[in-house]
Design a protein around this nucleic acid. Sequence first.
DNA 1: TTAGGGTTAG
Length: 560
Amino acid sequence: MTVPRLSYLNHLKYLTSTAQSCFDASFKNTSLTEASQFYSSLIQQCNKLIDPSLKCGSINYGRKLFDELPNRHVFMWNSMISSYISHKKSKEGIGLYERMVLDGVYLDEYTFSCVFKAFSNLGLINEGRRGHGLSVVLGLEVSNAFVRSGLVDMYAKFGRMKDARLLSNRAVDKDVVLFMSLIVGYSQHGDDDLTNGKLVHGLVIKSGYEPAVASQTSLLTMYARCGLIGDSLRIFKRFPNPNHVTWTSLIVGLVRNGREELALTKFRIMIRNSIIPNCLTLSRKQIHTMVTKFGLDRDIYAGAALVNLYGKCGSTEMASYAQNGFGHEAPELFNSMKELGLEPNEVTILSVLLACNNSGLVHEGCQIFATITNNQTTELEEAEALVKQVGNPDVVLWRTLLSACKLHGEVEMAERAVNKFKKNPAMSWVDVDREVHTFMAGDLSHPRSREINETLEKLIGKVKLLGYVPDTRFVLQDMDEELKKRSLYYHSEKLAISFALLMSSNKNTIIRIFKNLRVCGDCHSWIKFVTKVSGREIIARDAKRFHHFKDGLCSCGDYW
DNA sequence: TTAGGGTTAG
């Protein structure tokens, strides 16, 4: 049979209606095979017409054709849905999927293999589960690898690694796509799932997919995020030609695990190997000269990172860099960014204000704040509303708001902000032999608590001889003077430092501690004395900035 | 003859 030449849409209409009548006829007709063959060839022609219009990106035109067709084959529904999803229109894709369900269109494995992605894109977990149920009822979860990996990926994206794992266990024929979804899931949500992550790695090795470069980098990231940087390094060594993404993943992993110096070394090796870093590598590495050398100072992220140099980097080298008044460059850089027509975002503004604050550039800080706000009070109210909108605002957000209130004398709002974060208990972390130990004030839970307290008492005795006087102004609770002194002695940072001193006698090893809140004035003075009596360097990163204590002095110049 | 995963940032 020849198909008459008609306009595009009419042609499609003709094809589909012919297909439908042919399909209807096939039930009455004795020549069923012939009819169904003709039917499929017609449907193919239809999709050949409709699919390219979707693939070329003219999705609206494709939809128009789709809507006007008298009969739509499941191919067309699927093409339409997958086009929506790949064009970042998951909502529309799901809309069509739901219409298919309501209209009683027969859903097939192609429908499900793309629709789960739309659920995870939109964070629709309940709808996703319902879709999962439907695929089970239709027998597609079991029979089709595409459907299954779509489901595993969806659960992994939702962070429901247990469900993802359960589903993948059921798959007899695990393929590389399934493994990738699992590995990426574990690397992003798997802080408590290291055993499973390792297990998956084992399975990947067994199934022969290990050499795939992409999954290797994911493995590297997975181990780094779980704190096993040694394993990341081992994986990295096996790369014959690591690219800039691989390098960046390793460097970011090292920084995350507190190995800044090694990260810097790796960064230098990377440059020596002629791997050009991009703004992502640099925004972590935070190296000013590199940023300007590669012309990346126009990039807003690199710019923000550059300005943020103060707050984040824990390496001695960077600290001394910061001490040389680098903070003065922050406002200049900020202004040149604006001159270039780059709109600063909230991170840029926060960073530049932080840098001004750290360098005592009050005037510059106020000026910058003024340029971004016309009506300051209203802006502050908006800021407060914004903070409240954030699902679970953390202490950093509230503190940012608080500093803004301070700047504008907004006492009432400041009180509200203070009330939100004061509940956070003070905690300190210390890294000893690549293991992180956590301490809270008066903490007796550490297995070596008794020895830690002995070390601490001895230290207090020694520093008192050098002139340390407990400053009880930093105890806010209402109690008698002696008790106040005792409570100061057991602040979390004092416990963490005592533990580090107990564990390592090597004078060259720098002690690094982290604290979730700001270091208090008494501890600050105490730590300065401790560097004198122990001859050790101590680096403390608190919630606000970074303090480098050495020979009885601190890099912040007692201004923080 | 319509389908699935992919590492890095403040």
